[in-house]
Nucleic acid binder design. Structure first.
Length: 427
RNA sequence: GGGGGCGUGGUCUAGUGGUUUAGGACGCCGGCCUUUCACGCCGGAGGACGCGGGUUCGAACCCCGCCGCCCCUACCA
């Protein structure tokens, strides 16, 4: 790749930025950043009916969240309509196109073929006989996709067009427009394999999180999404799975991009996201969670729960009890608060109340003391306490949970549970 | 219908003629760890590389046919 690569990411603002589009944006960005080239953001909004400002805003926001920036643009094709119309007129004048019931069609030769040189798939020939004279301008004079793309790629000096495979069949048409427009060599093309849902069909909302916005809301980290998306259709070697963004920029190349479509597997993204979450500095994780929840003071809750999170959305269910009391899960209560649970909990309360050093080590020895004293299994003591403190049977480590709540709050919650179980008044 | 692309365990992939009894990862199953759930660690099941021919001493890798899936075939992009 030359160091003067000029790439473009050209989404159509007819909807949110989908995962496939995000992957295309990522690959273009990696290529631009890795080569010291330029990335242009272009909005293909020649379909004025379906293109909306809201979608443009959403796409720009999604790119921002993914931390993918661009060097030029965003430029809207609709703003370049005059330029497109001028070229359409010139093509008609020069005989490359003609009017047909008001619309304008490009002349496609009856014989011969146009060959697409694809960086990923090699040379692909398209027989002209199978391509009709296609419309490049509507009868109202407005330019159509294949014309606008060709004119813009040419005007913008795009050297590499990297886009989804769904555009592969359009490429010979754009190549023909380009040729009619002038003699300049066309850009290099690379068509990325499409992304499918678990059912093998084109990815859509019915497959769960399908847009970048939904990924963000589901609690995924942009760096994890970048890493995962990079691996959907590209691999560096036989064993490397984790890449920092710098490593991706350095190592990504089109010649290792796969040719076959990939299925977006949210389970693997969850796993990868969990790995990123666990390796993050607690302060940073707390900052992101505080931003997400619009509240401060989450650091302590983060420290006891970080190792259990797979997404940011997992935080509240697992550590919300630290911030505020949670309703008790009836099933948890019924399962744990049986037999002599009340008595064990009362003894636990006494041990915690009498504890001098209220830290993890102190709490642990106090609780294990109760276990030894009663001669029961640890969980006979820990689970009732867990339910009293958190409302459920699943939570962060019990010693840490006790300490993070503090003695006063912990005893208060235990008392409330004792009252409910009727296991006797607090001593 | 026509044109084009693709086809390695459920999923993402490594592997382009022999070092492959096809490697790694997610998921799944079992075990260990253990205060719950995770994490982590260990082990396991699951692919004869879409199918059928051919070339070759030898093919997942080359050739042909077929099948399947997807894309284009719009005055959508």
């Amino acid at each position: 790749m030359s160091e003067s690569m000029r790439l473009r990411f050209a989404p159509s603002p007819t909807g949110a930025l989908h995962i496939g589009g995000a992957r295309t944006a990522l690959y273009n960005w990696l290529l631009a950043r890795g080569s010291g080239g330029t990335l242009v953001l272009r909005l293909e909004d020649t379909d004025r009916e379906r293109s909306t400002p809201e979608n443009v805003e959403q796409i720009v926001e999604a790119l921002g969240w993914l931390e993918l920036d661009w060097d030029e643009g965003p430029v809207s094709q609709s703003e370049r309509s005059d330029r497109h119309r001028a070229e359409i007129a010139r093509l008609v004048e020069e005989g490359h196109a003609y009017e047909d019931e008001g619309a304008v069609r490009l002349r496609v030769p009856d014989a011969g073929s146009t060959t697409v040189r694809d960086e990923i798939r090699g040379e692909i020939a398209f027989e002209h006989a199978a391509i009709t004279d296609f419309v490049i301008a509507r009868s109202d004079g407005s330019p159509l996709y294949n014309l606008a793309v060709a004119v813009d790629d040419r005007d913008m000096g795009i050297t590499h067009v990297v886009r989804g495979e769904d555009h592969l069949s359009n490429t010979p048409r754009q190549l023909m427009v380009l040729r009619a427009l002038g003699d300049e060599p066309p850009p290099d093309y690379a068509h990325l394999p499409l992304l499918h849902g678990p059912d093998g069909k084109k990815l859509s909302k019915r497959h769960g999180a399908a847009s970048v916005e939904e990924l963000r809301d589901a609690g995924y980290l942009p760096e994890a999404v970048r890493n995962y998306l990079a691996l959907l259709g590209w691999g560096y070697d036989a064993e490397t799975t984790f890449f920092t963004t710098d490593e991706l920029v350095e190592r990504f190349s089109l010649d290792r991009v796969s040719r076959s479509p990939a299925v977006f597997d949210e389970q693997k993204l969850r796993w990868m996201n969990g790995r990123y979450l666990r390796e993050m500095q607690p302060a940073e994780l707390a900052r992101r969670l505080e931003e997400r929840h619009g509240r401060a003071g989450l650091r302590a809750a983060v420290e006891v729960s970080q190792e259990k999170l797979q997404t940011l959305a997992d935080f509240w269910p697992t550590a919300g009890f630290v911030v505020e009391r949670q309703p008790t899960d009836p099933r948890a209560w019924a399962k744990v608060m049986t037999g002599g649970a009340g008595d064990r909990l009362r003894l636990t309360r006494d041990a915690l109340a009498a504890l001098e050093r209220f830290d993890v080590g102190g709490v642990e020895s106090a609780l294990r003391g109760v276990v030894d004293e009663l001669g029961v299994k640890p969980k006979e003591v820990f689970q009732p306490l867990r339910v009293a403190l958190t409302g459920g049977t699943v939570s962060p480590g019990i010693f840490e949970s006790v300490v993070v709540l503090g003695r006063e709050e912990a005893l208060s919650r235990i008392d409330a549970a004792l009252e409910r179980v009727g296991g006797g008044a607090p001593s």
